[in-house]
Amino acid sequence: MPIYYDTEIKSRLMLGTAQYPSPAILAEAFKRSGADIATVSVRREAGDERAGQAFWDMIGDLGVHVLPNTAGCHSVREAVTTAQMARELFDTSWIKLEVIGHADTLQPDPFGLVEAARILTDDGFQVFPYCTEDLVLCERLVEAGCRVLMPWGAPIGTGLGLNNIYGLRSLRAHFPDLPLVIDAGLGLPSQAAHAMELGYDAVLLNTAVAKAGDPAAMAEGFARALEAGRLGFKADPMEPRDMAAPSTPVLGRAFT
């Protein structure tokens, strides 16, 4: 199972906590999938609602690791300050670092991401950067101190799956020992299985589960797909070939 910054995790599934129909369905999704990491955020309280404490209590009841994010931050300053606030609120040095570079695609700003990763690493954070599959960017992030990389499969919330198989395979080949997590863009369990078959260590999901008709069933479906894909990867798959080759013995065939 994956080890992130010396912490061994019991599942290859990281699960977001947003957009579920109800807190009970969120809890059921975690239970049925066995997800061991929950992503969370920090936000302004709306009016006198004081919903933060209730949410915090619910997350505590899940009994999983908490990975705060800097979602929605468009500058290094915003991301760093948000990370510092999250560290105090959630009492963890883990941070899923997002520095968004484009409003339409929500793709990471690679320049700001590296700068923020360096600042936060120097400040004692253990950074999980939401990045693209660009090899040079990922090398810079590792130089900045990241010991996990989280490339997107496709833009956040699209469900398009793995858009750049070559790039993801190349990244795996260049960083054979670093935990690699597909973060964002998955919509179906088969896409998660494919990520495992490429040798990835884990996936991070939110919308694919929360917006499914039956979120808990979908979470379990993803968990099983991850297990299946990982087994396939470890089992040393056959090489594909263009020409057909009979699997039933040719020798001994009747009528010959």
Partner: peptide
């Protein structure tokens, strides 16, 4: 940090952010 709030003085025009735990992806 929370520990420094009692001694953190406010000035006219300051911008304060107060955030709480929330759902996230």
């Amino acid at each position: 940090p929370a520990a420094l709030r009692p001694e953190q003085r406010l000035s006219s025009g300051d911008r304060v952010e107060i955030v709480a735990p929330r759902q996230g992806g």
